[in-house]
């Protein structure tokens, strides 16, 4: 290594260290004085998750994705990693607005979640009893083709 190259190397290292120091200085100190920003997640219902926290934090997307294909394509409905099951503990309802722990964490990590475009944010509820139809509802369709349907 030439002298110039060695100097460049040290300069780069110094710059990196300086940047890191700045980053640490600007980081808001989270709980217990640890220099690690963390999202504020509401206490989920129940004592513990179905696996330990570290494992779930890293692997929940894989677990959900794997099981979703099993359920959707093969009709296996006994798996333990369903989004519906997550919602039993990790969803809350404040002032009529459903909120999930998924939202909090993913908003913090700036990851857009589109699960809720289709999936319900709430646990399954008891079925509503449909009101008796007293008059023909708009679901009726009247078709008069020239011949039979065939």
């Amino acid at each position: 290594m030439t002298g110039m190259a060695r100097l460049g190397h040290w300069l780069r290292l110094a710059a990196l260290l300086g940047a890191s120091a700045l980053l640490v200085a600007q980081t808001p100190n989270a709980a217990a004085g640890v220099n690690k920003p963390e999202p504020t997640i509401a206490q989920a219902k129940g004592d513990h998750c179905i696996r330990d926290d570290e494992f779930m934090m890293r692997h929940h997307p894989d677990l959900l994705k794997h099981q979703r294909d099993d359920t959707m394509h093969r009709g296996i409905r006994s798996g333990e990693f369903s989004l519906k099951r997550c919602m039993e503990c990790h969803s809350s309802n404040s002032n009529g607005v459903a909120k999930t722990d998924c939202d909090t964490c993913h908003a913090f990590a700036a990851v857009k979640l589109d699960c809720w475009d289709c999936h319900a944010k709430k646990p399954a509820k008891a079925k509503a009893v449909p009101a008796a139809a007293s008059q023909p509802s708009p679901m009726m369709t009247s078709v008069q083709p020239g011949g039979q349907m065939q």
Partner: peptide, 10 residues
């Protein structure tokens, strides 16, 4: 699902 009423005009 659609409820239909069909008529053979013939």
């Amino acid at each position: 699902i659609r409820k239909m009423h069909i008529k053979n005009l013939q």
